[in-house]
Amino acid sequence: MNFFKYLSDPLINENPVMVQILGLCSALAVSRSMEPALIMAMSVIAVLVFSNVVISLLRSVIPRSIRLILEVIIIASAVIVVDELIKTFAVEVSEYLSVFVGLIITNCIILGRAEAFALGHGPLDSFADALGNGLGYAFVILIVSAARELLGAGSLFNVNLLPLLEDGGWYRPNQLMLYAPSAFFLIGFLIWGVRSMHIFQVNKSTHRLPRHL
């Protein structure tokens, strides 16, 4: 019962990127096309699940005084393994992702979930929470990268869908989508959409007048 709640909540209602404002850097920076975004999402899910479950298993053993540094070391070790795997089996993507795989260590989703959830829950619930948050992150990064690749290059996963002008088609790629600012605009509009659907999520502190009443 709780398992499915922990799994499904972070997908939209408690989405780590759009609602908890965690893990933004990589969501913005590696969303230019879908292939690296998918690999990035898979890496984050792998590291998140591993660290959440391990930290949950160790939660009664870890001394409070060195809690943070142990969590960071566990996360960093998982990231090294993932980084080596990507370097081995997806060389080109690893060059594109460059420093951003390493920066999974400082992806606030991972340390955030470890601190806020894994330290207080059992391994099974922590697994569900990690998977849910990972999928919530994947959901955002894949939507943003799909929009950027389709509008910026007329393709998805490097497969051309909109025939380009330079190849005799009709679509003129939007160059802006290849640059960083487009990611901000897209996530901004995505947040607008999601929050309009769930108006109650609008940040209480900035919500001065209940104008929808």
Partner: peptide, 25 residues
Amino acid sequence: FVAAAVALVCSVMVTAAVFYLRPIQ
């Protein structure tokens, strides 16, 4: 003890990954 144990397990994991993957890379 806990710090040493965690460090040991993590280093074994990382070294094993690097040891097996570097030649393939």
